[in-house]
Design a protein around this nucleic acid. Structure first.
Lengths: 171, 171
DNA sequence: TAATTTAACCGTATATAATTCTGTCAATAA
DNA sequence: TTATTGACAGAATTATATACGGTTAAATTA
């Protein structure tokens, strides 16, 4: 056994709790309990357990990006000039420091990193791109500006299967 | 005036509330109030106002994707065969139906759509790609599998500037 | 300047919810 | 069968959210 705490498989109720909480993170425990057909106490026990076991990492408000000055998104493909671990490390350390870089993924398939930027407008893009290009090890970049967000689901598609004997997954 | 309700500019305290809530969405109002140097009642008033005015769109639990069977991510570039609005509409209607498609962005700069997929593993990728390729209008695709998530910030970088006279933005 | 209005705030009181505690039931194993 | 375990419900307690009333300060107007 690799961990000291035993983590039991998730049952149907756990999945239902997780699915509800990822959509309504501030639902009252009483109401959550009703929704999953439990009374308040076992329900809150399960939530605490799911938090402790790391299935729930935290809670957050979903903010309106447009109203808060981040209505524009762009993806930047980045290729580094040498693929040594030193170059990679320096690039990563620098890129995570830029607040407008919402995501940075190391990818396989043609270039090295894919960045997702959140920006107020296209003017802001120029100055950020200048920063990205000057990052250590950057050889070339290619930008794709988002014209329209067709879908932006943050939640995971949890399967609310009736069969509690087939839990979907654990670590 | 386009809207009937008057929305005042956000001040330093509002920004601080939003920044706190996007990180700790389930913080008790009492504690939130302490953090922003208010008493409980004006604090909850502001939160309700921010919700009503649409700055806060909701709350959600942050779930551990790996533990819940979505440890693999991939980006797929999609080019459609004709860029008529009919083709675009059909593609979009179909792609949003696929639960594993976490994001779908229409982009400018070489191809038409950029999709972000959440998957249990690489085996699952095959069947999803088959679905994507069969979507109406799809001419070609190119996949980039995520090797490592260097950064994945969901929150907006709200500026907690001391000067309350220069609010960052509104709709 | 002085009076008036407005908005934001604080503290208190009440309502609601979270949390703890105790006992019961059902499943499992000895 | 009997002991043990785990999960649950319901009640009691604690904590929190929310509504209310009064105060202050700032802005506006006379």
């Amino acid at each position: 056994m690799t961990t000291n705490s035993k983590i039991k498989a998730l049952d149907r109720i756990d999945i239902s709790i997780l699915d509800t909480l990822q959509k309504e993170g501030r639902i009252a425990n009483v109401d959550l309990a009703k929704k999953v057909n439990l009374s308040a106490s076992p329900c809150i026990d399960r939530v605490k357990r799911l938090e402790k076991e790391g299935f729930i990492e935290g809670y957050g408000a979903r903010l309106n990006s447009s109203k808060l000055g981040y209505g524009t998104a762009a993806f930047i493909q980045v290729t580094l000039d040498r693929t040594t671990s030193d170059v990679f490390d320096k690039f990563r350390d620098a890129v995570v420091q830029i607040p407008q870089v919402a995501e940075c993924h190391m990818v396989a398939g043609g270039f090295d990193y894919l960045l997702k930027l959140r920006l107020p407008n296209m003017e802001a893009y120029r100055s950020i791109l200048a920063q990205i290009v000057d990052l250590p090890g950057v050889a070339q970049t290619h930008t794709y500006v988002v014209i329209e967000q067709v879908k932006n689901d943050q939640g995971l598609p949890l399967k609310l299967h009736a069969d509690a004997s087939t839990p979907p997954a654990q670590s």
